[in-house]
Amino acid sequence: MSGTRGQRMDMVLEADRLGKRYGSTWALRDCSLHLPAGRIAALVGPNGAGKSTLLHLAVGLLKPDAGTVRVFGRSPYGDTEGLADIGFVAQDTPLYRDFTASELVIAGGKLNKRWDAALARQRLAQLGIPPDKPVGKLSGGQRAQVALALALAKQPRLLLLDEPVASLDPLARREFLQSLMGSVAESGTTVLLSSHLLADLERVCDYLIVLNASQVQLTGAVDDLVAEHRQLVGPRHDGGAIGGVAAVVRASHTDRQSTLLVRTDGPVTDPAWTVREVSLEDVVLAYLADGTTKTNHSEWGVAA
């Protein structure tokens, strides 16, 4: 046990064949991933992919139906003490709407043993949030900032944010992410943000988890992912092995030509293929497309 823990000391979040079921539908299934300490990780996937479920499992709101999830080596469900190390901002940044921002800071102080009220007030003052206005009357961007300030006042070692910018306009998005990056850069807090749009997070994250159809499609450091994927363009490919290619993620064909997005395990030297570098977005889209071709012909009662 101690050996495993020593080995995994730098892992903040570990999931092992984690699953959660609502009725007979699995919202998350066979989810295994590791999030190393100090990363800013993006959790990307289409709506309904299980992102919120994964975050709720990590913050102990939900109890796993299969597998395990560990945060700092502890199982989060029902673990009140462990919660002190996790800051969580839920989707749509729910706050008591009739409370003022200043009252929410007081409430946080009453609900937490470790609470840096001065830090929260400092942040909110800098952002120009009025202290005496009910937060229900603030703009969406301001409310998100209040929720972030409250999460940071816990001085968490892991910060989980569920679609924090989904409801914000582009300007507020940028401001929110900037202020987030500014504050976690100093503290070394590990951050996991979810979004259904990679573009929202591409600039800030250095680690990526792609979730689709309740399963993990791809996980790893952004630099590694970009470095190990390539686009190959060449003669029509029949599925045979190509030197240096570990797996074909996605292939599209015309009559005479194939375009492949591949994961490489070495240099592709075959001169038949033109090798191009790919962007992170290309990689993510390739993996998402891989899992989504699910047809509904029978449910719609039409011929496939």
Binding site: A90, Q91, P94, Y96, G108, L111, N112, K154
Partner: peptide, 17 residues
């Protein structure tokens, strides 16, 4: 309904309490 349970139950106070 307002989602605030996700705020209050993820602070340092257990749900039973």
């Amino acid at each position: 309904e307002q989602g605030t349970h996700r705020f209050v139950w993820t602070q340092g106070v257990g749900r039973n309490q």
